[in-house]
Simulated assay, not measured.
Amino acid sequence: MTHPMTILGSLAERWKLDDLTPVGSGLEFSVYSARNKDGRAVALRLAHRRFDSNANDPQVDTRALLVQEYEITRHLTAHGFPVAEPLELHLAEDASSPDVLLSAYVPDDGSDIDSFALGELLARLHRLPPPRRLVPVAAEGVSTRQALVARIRRRWAETGRHVADWPAPPDPALLARHLSGVTETALVHLDVRSANIRRSGGRVNALLDWSNALLGDAILEFGRLTEYARYPENQLDPEALRAGYTTLQREGLPPGTAPAMLACRLDTALMLALVFLSEAPDPTRGPTAADHARELADALTKER
């Protein structure tokens, strides 16, 4: 495999970039900052490898994720929605070489997030038309509802590999019934948290990382937000988020205990349990997160 820094060096020369500096790294990607010939700050998102695997997602095509990021952010930029504007997408001819997305670099002052304003922004997102012909990577080729049922069951089984006396999974027919009201009318981000929010004075400058995006609705988005808000580092105030959201979406949101919301929360709770049990093991958070997922499943089962 061609060394990533060799690829970056070649692309930096082609794109006339200077001051290449690492700024972050995750499961599938690393991010570098640089400056172009006009002195503008840019960011390069580099895939670690073409195909990846982890406890939550056993088959990850990083090229598909970069192409999706490029298409979604190009679409949202055209609609004036705050994202990192995509500039270039480099897809390597050799499958052993990494793919790279070049985007505008969005500044961040580290201020506390204004959750009310963030809720208003998410309402704007959900009112925009989704990109045409978008087939989200996370949907795995099926409808959003089918994808949610399949991954709840898959992640439930995977969690059971790490937790003793793990019970049988929720009935898939029950899950499907509770999720039957979830629509595919909007683009939902599904990874809204501090690490993916660039801001100044608490206001959002850009929502980053659209890898988890699906076609869905507010129930799906807020199911995830409710679970993310349990962790202080995500800096989310669920009540302020709801209040901000409903200033533009007057029909309101169902409570967090509504069956559809419980199912969407379970999807997120299992994902977080696997993060803390396997991907980033935490001896306290892991078992606690698994217990919480089990409690949500129990509550969901009672909603017949």
Rank of each mutant, 00 (worst) to 15 (best):
149 V>P: 05
151 R>Y: 00
151 R>W: 03
154 R>T: 11
155 R>N: 14
156 W>N: 04
156 W>I: 10
157 A>Q: 15
157 A>P: 00
164 A>K: 11
164 A>N: 12
165 D>M: 02
165 D>N: 15
168 A>C: 02
169 P>Y: 01
172 P>D: 09
176 A>G: 15
179 L>D: 10
180 S>M: 02
181 G>N: 07
183 T>P: 09
185 T>I: 03
186 A>M: 09
190 L>I: 01
191 D>C: 12
193 R>D: 00
196 N>W: 03
198 R>P: 00
198 R>D: 02
200 S>K: 13
201 G>P: 04
204 V>T: 15
204 V>H: 01
205 N>V: 02
205 N>Y: 00
205 N>W: 05
205 N>P: 00
206 A>E: 06
207 L>K: 07
209 D>S: 11
213 A>Y: 03
216 G>K: 10
216 G>P: 07
216 G>C: 12
217 D>C: 08
217 D>F: 10
217 D>T: 07
218 A>D: 13
220 L>F: 06
222 F>W: 04
223 G>A: 12
225 L>K: 02
227 E>C: 05
228 Y>R: 08
229 A>V: 07
229 A>K: 07
229 A>R: 04
232 P>T: 08
233 E>Y: 03
235 Q>I: 00
236 L>V: 05
237 D>S: 09
239 E>Y: 06
239 E>N: 09
240 A>F: 10
240 A>R: 14
240 A>E: 15
241 L>E: 03
242 R>Y: 04
243 A>D: 15
244 G>H: 05
245 Y>L: 07
246 T>D: 01
249 Q>V: 14
250 R>N: 03
250 R>L: 12
251 E>T: 14
252 G>D: 07
252 G>L: 10
253 L>G: 03
257 T>D: 15
258 A>R: 08
260 A>F: 06
261 M>S: 12
261 M>Y: 14
262 L>P: 02
263 A>T: 10
263 A>H: 10
263 A>P: 06
265 R>I: 08
266 L>N: 06
268 T>D: 05
270 L>M: 07
271 M>W: 04
271 M>L: 13
271 M>Q: 09
271 M>V: 00
274 L>M: 02
276 F>T: 00
276 F>K: 00
277 L>Q: 10
280 A>F: 05
280 A>E: 15
282 D>G: 08
282 D>M: 05
283 P>F: 09
283 P>H: 13
283 P>R: 14
284 T>F: 11
287 P>C: 11
287 P>A: 11
289 A>P: 04
290 A>P: 02
291 D>G: 12
